[in-house]
Nucleic acid binder design. Structure first.
Length: 562
RNA sequence: GCCCCUGUAGUUCAAUGGAUAGAAUGCGAGAUUGCGGAUCUCGUGAUUCAGGUUCGAAUCCUGACGGGGGCGCCA
């Protein structure tokens, strides 16, 4: 790595001047005009040893310049004492060759080679709507899964679903008491909403639903289980359809009906040791281990396991099925505080598993009117959102005269890209105020912009092929902004994976796409009379590859034409 | 009341303690029938407030104000 070479060179010079041991950084400056790498070494040395940082920087530069590697074109002192390094044409030409050679593998790293990872995300509950919150979890989870895969790990995707509990009973009770027909998942979700309303308003319905709840747990009632099986089947089928549209394929499905009894057993075995009785319930005193934590109930006074007990059991169930080195659980941030308590309890029950577990929380997709609730029916379903986006995309497709083989498939690809991009472009953990028109853009900083740029590059490459111009990295053409970005792609992927932050990839790709579109507007790429044309085509191939690979990591499709 | 997260152009988002706070959108002005105008170029406009730490703060610390979430038997 050239960054390491620069760092080594600086260390060497510092030592020879008697300033060894200073801890400095070598990084990409925010501004391209400040070079490709920059160091604050002079500032730090001046602070410790005294003196003028600018003068010191000049001395360092003159020393460094004595043995400049051929990958470095020039070194400059800037501003208060920063030292900026500019890479040479040779470096960019070599990097471009590497990018072309590695093709679809360019961007892969080995930081997690040999590791097994399990990523849990989406987690929709049967009998309820698959709404835009699930869409958010799915999008982030899929991107993180792929980032971990690109780092060399073997990844298994897991989905955890609440198929038992009062929410299920409300839907089933509503069907049994009203005789509602269930032929699609939306019917089931509607019964859930209606059942929830009655549960709060009608005492006799509430008693009936509670009775149904007990029967679901106990088994044996034909009517109850007939409705239960039908509702579960219909909603799960719908979820599968959504996963297909979104590009997710789960390896494991976990259900609460399984984690519940196991979690209960784990807690009961450790009463008096880790857990204790309080007002008839079994609780964990989080505050005894960490002042920021609080007490949470693991078993209710009816000895039913809560979310916390189930989660504890789930960690072990997962491990027994797939002995992971890394377990990533992605949820909305409303459960962040519970998860901290669960993790603390897990440290005591399964210390090895707790160390391997990472909780990543994302913000909520909020409506301008406030919080979304499937209980009151104030939800935006994922299906509706995708259909609306498709309608908007179709208008654009119909208006264009380009030949598209399967317009419906393309509309879906572009619509999903727009939605996923709007979720992935921001750093995880923050809420998104969801406003359809504002969130879903097809222009500028958007998913379709990246797809468009990819398709455009692809089209240029077809033209180059027709003109028999094959890509070849040359060293006559001045370096472009694209080249100054392209070689950074693997480090971008690595940082995004370490921070579980897909938005780092998004920001990079949109910057790269912008630099390519700028280049495109200024240069004729395919030109048989231009001896630099093969080089420009090579640049186009590299950009096309990185966009393709980057979009793949994000879980966004890259159509060949659009 | 207590705990956690959070406050950046009109709006939606960026910015590993670093340099002139970047994009997009909106608004205004433009791009020779030149490889895809879902594009490109120019202009406009922001760190909630008050202290502190630091050579250097949107970023770290303290306080005020605003927003969101959570505070034992739902998840």
């Amino acid at each position: 790595m050239i960054a390491d070479a620069i760092k080594g060179q600086i260390s060497h010079v510092l030592e020879s001047l008697g300033y060894g041991g200073t801890i400095f950084v070598v990084e990409h400056p925010a501004e391209m005009t400040h070079g490709d790498y920059s160091t604050n070494a002079a500032l730090l040395v001046a602070k410790e040893a005294g003196g003028d940082p600018r003068e010191l920087a000049k001395r360092l530069v003159s020393e460094i310049s004595k043995a400049l590697p051929e990958e470095i074109d020039k070194v400059e002192v800037a501003d208060a004492g920063f030292i900026n390094f500019f890479l040479s044409r040779k470096f960019f030409t070599d990097s471009l060759k590497t990018t072309l050679e590695q093709g679809e593998k360019f961007g892969k790293t080995a930081s997690l080679v040999g590791k097994k990872a399990m990523v849990e995300y989406t987690d929709p509950n049967p009998f309820k709507e698959f709404h835009i919150g699930h869409l958010m979890s799915n999008t982030i989870g899929e991107a993180i899964s792929r980032l971990v895969e690109w780092s060399g790990a073997e990844v298994r995707r897991a989905c955890y679903q609440g198929d038992v509990g009062i929410h299920v009973a409300k839907a089933v009770a509503e069907k049994l008491s009203s005789g509602a027909e269930w032929s699609a998942s939306a019917d089931v979700a509607r019964s859930y909403t209606e059942g929830s309303r009655k549960y709060e308003e009608d005492v006799s319905f509430r008693e009936f639903a509670n009775e149904v709840n007990r029967k679901i747990y106990a088994g044996g009632d034909r009517d109850v289980h007939g409705a239960y099986d039908l509702g579960k089947k219909l909603t799960l089928e719908h979820f599968e359809k959504m996963y297909k549209t979104l590009g997710t394929k789960f390896d494991f499905y976990f259900f609460e009906s399984r984690s519940a009894p196991f979690g209960k057993k784990l807690v009961e075995e450790r009463i008096g040791d880790i857990f204790e009785e309080s007002d008839g319930a079994i609780v964990f005193r989080g505050e005894r281990h960490d002042a920021k934590l609080h007490t949470r109930v693991f078993l209710t006074k009816d000895k039913l396991p809560t979310y916390e007990a189930k989660e504890l059991g789930l960690a072990k169930i997962k491990y027994d099925l797939y002995p992971y080195d890394l377990s990533i659980v992605i949820t909305g941030n409303e459960v962040s505080d519970y998860f901290k308590v669960v993790l603390k309890a897990m440290e005591l029950v399964f210390p090895d598993l707790a160390k391997k577990t990472n909780h990543i929380s994302h913000g909520m997709l909020r409506l301008p009117t406030g919080k979304m609730s499937s209980r009151t029916g104030e939800v935006v379903s994922a299906e509706w959102l995708i259909e609306e986006a498709k309608r908007k995309v179709n208008e654009k497709i119909e208006a264009s005269d380009r030949e598209i083989a399967d317009k419906n498939a393309l509309a879906e690809q572009v619509a999903v890209a727009a939605i996923k991009y709007s979720i992935l472009k921001q750093s995880p953990g923050k809420d998104i105020i969801f406003d359809f028109d504002k969130s879903l853009s097809f222009e500028g900083d958007s998913g379709p912009y990246l797809q468009y740029t990819h398709a455009r590059a692809n089209s240029i490459l077809e033209k180059a092929n027709e003109a028999s111009i094959s890509p070849s990295a040359g060293d006559n053409f001045p370096e472009t902004e694209m080249e100054r970005l392209l070689y950074r792609f693997p480090e971008i992927v690595e940082r995004a994976e370490k921070e579980f932050a897909p938005n780092i990839v998004v920001t990079f790709l949109v910057e790269l796409a912008g630099s390519f579109n700028h280049f495109y507007a200024q240069e004729q790429i395919v030109d048989v009379g231009d001896k630099n044309s093969p080089h420009k085509v090579a640049l186009s191939v590299a950009v096309r590859n990185v966009l393709k690979n980057g979009l793949k990591i994000l879980g966004i499709s890259a159509p060949e034409r659009m």
